[in-house]
Write a protein that binds this DNA or RNA. Structure first.
Length: 279
DNA sequence: ATCGTAGCCTGGTAGC
DNA sequence: TGCTACCAGGCTACGA
């Protein structure tokens, strides 16, 4: 599932293959990924034709292609991909939108589950996602400030980590990894987290996502690949996520899986002790 | 204002 | 074998 490191890998691929190119033609094969466009898929295609892609930017899990003052906002959702191919190459099964570029290549948006989307927004190239907080890779990210805000929340720490209006880019996988590294239980009340520990957790989230980025991201299956169709290798670096029954690499205790927020949380029950009165 | 959750989606797999 | 149920989970909208 694409989280910050995976999205950044894709952003870099787009920056090197699509930035500076002009869009000659757009083909919408499925309307769902452009569902937010007010006038429909045909208008979406027309409005993007002949536009030049100036830059590819990212905040958290959102990317946007800048087209002059306008932004094509992209979210990969659960399974979105961008692929660079020749127009005649075989189309992947869940190809949704085609962009023919002026250098003879074709940019393809592929998305099996279609939680992702493409959203063209006028005049907001500098900040098309104002409701999304800065991510830990942003030079302006203020660790102490975010830690302070985190501690004023009245909720569990993992829920807060996943709140993209507090800190962006973290999804279920890297949340579990950061919590494992900081030895914190996912349901610890944020108010029980000391200032030093909160900073440690945020630092851990940045560190683990940085390491994942260096490995090309985390791929469990063909749902996450880069623009050339290649997988990342960080799944071997995961310490908690997906390791149910396997030994914690710190203490040897078996990693357990818990249901939380309608998803799975993986943790070491010894390193990450449950808060009092909770499972 | 803040917190918690239903619903959106498809395909692989477990179970019968 | 073929069917159903479940799981993966980020985000938005909405109710409490």
């Amino acid at each position: 599932m694409p989280e910050l490191p995976e999205v950044e890998v894709v952003r870099r691929g787009l920056a090197s293959h699509a930035a500076g190119r002009t869009i000659d033609k757009v083909t919408v094969l499925h309307p769902r990924p452009v569902r937010t466009h007010p006038v429909g898929p045909e208008a979406f295609a027309v409005e993007l034709t002949c536009r030049r892609i100036d830059d590819v930017r990212r905040r958290g899990k959102f990317m946007w292609l800048t087209l002059g003052d306008d932004a094509l906002v992209v979210h990969l959702g659960m399974s979105g991909q961008f692929r660079i191919n020749r127009p005649g190459d075989e189309l992947p099964r869940n190809t949704r939108v085609l962009f023919d570029l002026d250098d003879g290549f074709q940019l393809r948006f592929v998305d099996q589950r279609m939680f992702g989307g493409l959203d063209l927004r006028a005049g907001v190239a500098d900040d098309p996602v104002p409701h999304i907080a800065l991510d830990p890779f942003d030079p302006a990210f203020d660790v102490r400030g975010v830690a302070a805000r985190l501690r004023t929340r009245r909720t569990g720490v993992k829920r807060a980590l996943l709140d993209q209006s507090l800190i962006s880019g973290i999804g279920n996988i890297y949340a579990d990894e950061a919590l494992w590294r900081a030895r914190i239980h996912y349901d610890l009340p944020t108010t029980d987290l000391g200032p030093r520990k909160a900073v440690e957790l945020l630092d851990a989230s940045r560190t683990v996502m940085d390491e994942a980025l260096r490995q090309g991201g985390t791929s469990f299956d063909s749902l996450y690949v880069n623009v050339n169709g290649e997988s990342g290798y960080f799944s071997r670096g995961l310490e908690a996520y997906g390791r149910e029954g396997e030994p914690c690499r710190r203490c040897g205790t078996a990693i357990v899986r818990r249901s939380f927020m309608n998803r799975s949380s993986y943790l070491c029950p010894r390193c990450q002790r449950a808060p009092k009165g909770r499972p």
